[in-house]
Amino acid sequence: MNRDCTYHRPSTLAEAVDYLATKGGETTIIAGGTDVMVDLRAGKLERRNLLDVSRLDELRGIRLEGEKLVVGAAVTLAEIHRSPLLANHAPALQKCARNFASAQIRNKATIGGNVGHCSPCGDTIPPLVIHQAEMVCTGSSGQRRLPITEVATGAYRCQIARDEIITAFVLEPVGADFADFQKIGRRQALAISRMSMAAMLNQDQEGRITMLRLALGACTPTPCRLRLVEEFLLGKKPQPALLMQAGELLAEQMIAITGRRSSIIYKEPAVQGLFRRILSPVACHD
């Protein structure tokens, strides 16, 4: 048993923020624990005061607030999967929760933990990117919002200050004809994404793309919105040949970020394949 840990469970957000104001430097925030506990077992957890935020009401709930969709940071992947609100307004996010790890992990893992862990493979991130989500965090100096693409400064490196808590994510609801999330893993469950992708798209009556948002997961150290590809396709009909071209552009963009590592032998074609597959339902064949 890990001897040198402490445990604290605040009953309000304010109490949690107070705690962090003094002990933030030695504190790890724990909610679902599905990442923290793995690090704890491996002896890799450096900040060993555990602050349990899983029961803070301020971090819970999925709701529409005006034009925006708000998902509490302590909302679990299982809750995301079951949410009718998300099925309507953020189907890609809802879908990413469906095959996330395992039922047991979905019951505990939270969206805040998945984002805050800053794993390049976090499955909730690409859907949040296409919803142009902002992460809300609260600390002793008040609340601030950060675009989801700016949360991570590198793999497993987070922008959040030691005295801050992620409280929620604010999403633009879908407003599109088409939205999807797909992943490639080495197996059907309990698989870390080898690659994932989220897409959102609108077409006019002729099939021309009027809006497209595309995000890539597990390929780049930090979340990646594929703007070059989006711009390339905007106003065009997504015919197979064009999608193939766009896929090549996508791969180039990815390699520009990551460089040519050994895994690129697979990822370069696979990212194009996944892209063509995710957009195949909207492809124009005339």
Binding site: Y7, I30, G32, G33, T34, M37, V38, R41, L50, D52, A78, A101, S102, A103, Q104, I105, N107, K108, L190
Partner: peptide, 23 residues
């Protein structure tokens, strides 16, 4: 010990969880 096998699965408040990942 890391939530990958499910042999420690217990039910907490009606939900299946990995006891090895639960504090």
């Amino acid at each position: 010990g890391i939530g990958e096998c499910g042999a420690c699965t217990v039910v907490v408040d009606g939900k299946a969880v990995n006891a090895c990942l639960l504090l």
